[in-house]
C-alpha cells in the first residue's frame, strides 16, 4: 500500500526518573483495567497520528525505559530523533536542576538540529510545587527552547506539547526544503524539478 502520511517524526522523552515521562506517553497507566502483564513488561514506543495544517503526521514516541537511572543514555537512543521533550517534575527541584545536564547530554549525543521543548510536568499538584512557573520559563528562555507546564494526570497541555513540537519540526523541515530549492533556483524549469523531488524529501522515513 502507498504511504498514507506526509511526515514521520521520531520523538524522545528525556528527564529524571519519576518525573512522569511514562505518564505523558501513557495517559491512563494507573487504571485497574490493565493487566499486570502489560505493566510488568512496559511499553517501548507508541505510534500516534496527528494532523497539522492538513498534513498527516506520524509520531513515533519513545520513552527512555529507565535508562536514565544509570545515566547511560547515549548516541544509540538519540539516533534519528527529530524532537526531544525535556521533562521535569514541578514538585521536585532536583529534576528541574538536572534539565541542564540533560541538555548537555543531548548536545553531546543527539543531532545538532534536533528540536527541543521543556515540560514542567505534574502541574495539577500545585500544593506540592517546588519550581515556580517563572523559573521554568526563564530556563527555557536562556536556552531558547519552548516551555509548557503539563499534567499527564489531568491531560493538561499534553496534546498541545506534542503538537507544538511537531509543528516546530515541520517548520524547520520546510525551511530546509526552501533553502535547498532557492540555492538551485534559476528559472521556471528548475522550480518544476524541485517540486517533483519534494515528496521524497518530505517522507522522512526513519528506522
Amino acid at each position: 500500500m502507498a504511504k498514507t502520511y506526509d511526515y514521520l517524526f521520531k520523538l524522545l522523552l528525556i528527564g529524571d526518573s519519576g518525573v512522569g515521562k511514562t505518564c505523558l506517553l501513557f495517559r491512563f497507566s494507573e487504571d485497574a483495567f490493565n493487566t499486570t502483564f502489560i505493566s510488568t513488561i512496559g511499553i517501548d514506543f507508541k505510534i500516534r497520528t496527528i494532523e497539522l495544517d492538513g498534513k498527516k503526521i506520524k509520531l513515533q514516541i519513545w520513552d527512555t525505559a529507565g535508562q536514565e537511572r544509570f545515566r547511560t543514555i547515549t548516541t544509540a537512543y538519540y539516533r534519528g530523533a527529530m524532537g526531544i521533550m525535556l521533562v521535569y517534575d514541578i514538585t521536585n527541584e532536583k529534576s528541574f536542576d538536572n534539565i541542564k545536564n540533560w541538555i548537555r547530554n543531548i548536545e553531546e549525543h543527539a543531532s545538532s538540529d534536533v528540536e527541543r521543548m521543556i515540560l514542567g510536568n505534574k502541574c495539577d499538584m500545585n500544593e506540592k510545587r517546588q519550581v515556580s512557573k517563572e523559573k521554568g520559563e526563564k530556563l527555557a528562555i536562556d536556552y531558547g527552547i519552548k516551555f509548557l507546564e503539563t499534567s499527564a494526570k489531568s491531560s493538561i497541555n499534553v496534546e498541545e506539547a506534542f503538537f507544538t513540537l511537531a509543528r516546530d519540526i515541520m517548520t524547520k523541515l520546510n525551511r530546509k526544503m526552501n533553502d535547498n530549492s532557492s540555492s538551485g533556483a534559476g528559472g521556471p524549469v528548475k522550480i518544476t524539478e524541485n517540486r517533483s523531488k519534494k515528496s521524497s524529501f518530505f517522507r522522512c522515513t526513519l528506522l
Partner: peptide, 15 residues
C-alpha cells in the same frame, strides 16, 4: 505490513 500504517498503537518491550 508497515508499522506506520497504524493510526495509534503501542508496542511493548521485547518478550
Amino acid at each position: 505490513r508497515d508499522m506506520f500504517s497504524f493510526e495509534n498503537v503501542g508496542f511493548t518491550r521485547d518478550v
